[in-house]
């Protein structure tokens, strides 16, 4: 039953990916004016224009261009960057581990602290701890991540000197260096999403704690910790996991900005650079990459659902 469920979700994800790839393909036509004219300055000669047009394959019929695009996708090729001397796939893969490790760290911070804070607030419902935690969560939600990033740089990097102001140390080079370079950007990115998860975890937990089966568990004389950990939390996890899927999307988007703030050479910086330089193949590849990661995460979320809640497998 779980396998059938997985295949249904996989089919849905494939359709979305196909739509995104179509959008990426149309990008060249969607920008106002002629893509080639935008790339070159006004003084470019007609020969130069024609050469670039041919190099980009834009002189062919739309159908032929589409076939070439999907043909490349099928072989895992995303074309060549106009500016970087390498293929788009190479450029993306090079930076992939950096962005993924940043996003994963931020997600871990957001999920662990967000869920704990939300559950803690629910258990202390109406008390000072509840108000304190929700105040912090609201602050985290309200503050833009780049501002928090700049604040962290000023206080913890420039002021206290505990962390570098930016840059990236590969984990293969030095684990401690990697951790030091990732702490501030991970926190800046994760804390804003933590508030979101905390609020969801709190309301979900409060809802579950009021349900009949929690009273049944009380009637059985089970310990408070058993009731919370074995009965309430697994039921409260379903909405929290949903939010985790949404949060991952926000983190991927947020990493674009945070990579700029902390000068981290990740996919986000690559895409921003490509947009500024109108490096179309890289923009297209970046779009597909982000959509792919997002779909993958949501597929995992759907699977987690089915693992947590057996009723979902029927739907």
């Amino acid at each position: 039953m779980l396998v059938a469920f997985l295949f249904r979700r996989l089919g849905g994800a494939a359709v979305v990916f196909l739509l995104v790839s179509m959008l990426a393909f149309l990008l060249v036509w969607l920008i106002p004016g002629d893509a080639v004219a935008v790339l070159l300055d006004a003084a470019a000669s007609p020969e130069e224009t024609a050469r670039l047009r041919a190099a980009l394959g834009l002189d062919r019929s739309p159908l032929a261009q589409m076939l070439a695009w999907y043909g490349g996708l099928a072989r895992g090729q995303l074309g060549h960057s106009l500016l970087l001397n390498r293929s788009v796939a190479e450029a993306l893969l090079e930076r992939l581990p950096i962005t993924l490790s940043l996003t994963a760290l931020a997600l871990a911070i957001a999920v662990v602290f967000g869920t704990s804070a939300g559950v803690g607030a629910a258990l202390a419902h109406g008390g000072w701890l509840d108000q304190l935690l929700m105040g912090v969560a609201l602050f985290g939600l309200s503050v833009p991540d780049f501002w928090l990033g700049l604040l962290f740089i000023i206080v913890f990097a420039l002021g206290l000197g505990w962390f570098p102001t930016g840059g990236f140390v590969p984990i293969s080079e030095s684990l401690a260096g990697w951790a030091r370079s990732m702490t501030l950007p991970g926190l800046a990115l994760g804390l804003t999403q933590m508030g979101f998860i905390a609020r969801m975890a709190r309301s979900s937990m409060l809802d579950v704690l009021g349900q009949d089966f929690v009273r049944t568990a009380e009637a059985k004389g089970l310990s408070r910790s058993r009731i919370i950990l074995a009965h309430a939390l697994p039921n409260a996890m379903v909405p929290i996991v949903t939010v985790i899927g949404i949060v991952t999307g926000a983190l991927l988007g947020g990493s674009v900005v945070i990579e700029q703030v902390f000068s981290i050479p990740g996919v986000g910086r690559l895409i921003v650079g490509a947009i500024l330089a109108r490096d179309f193949p890289v923009i297209q590849g970046g779009l597909l990459f982000l959509a792919g990661v997002y779909l993958l995460v949501n597929l995992i979320v759907d699977l987690l659902y089915a693992v947590i809640d057996p009723r979902v497998r029927l739907a």
Partner: peptide, 12 residues
């Protein structure tokens, strides 16, 4: 209890 469906933990 009255409602055996809601009185049982649905995910256990």
């Amino acid at each position: 209890f009255q409602e055996p469906l809601s009185a049982l933990n649905p995910v256990m």
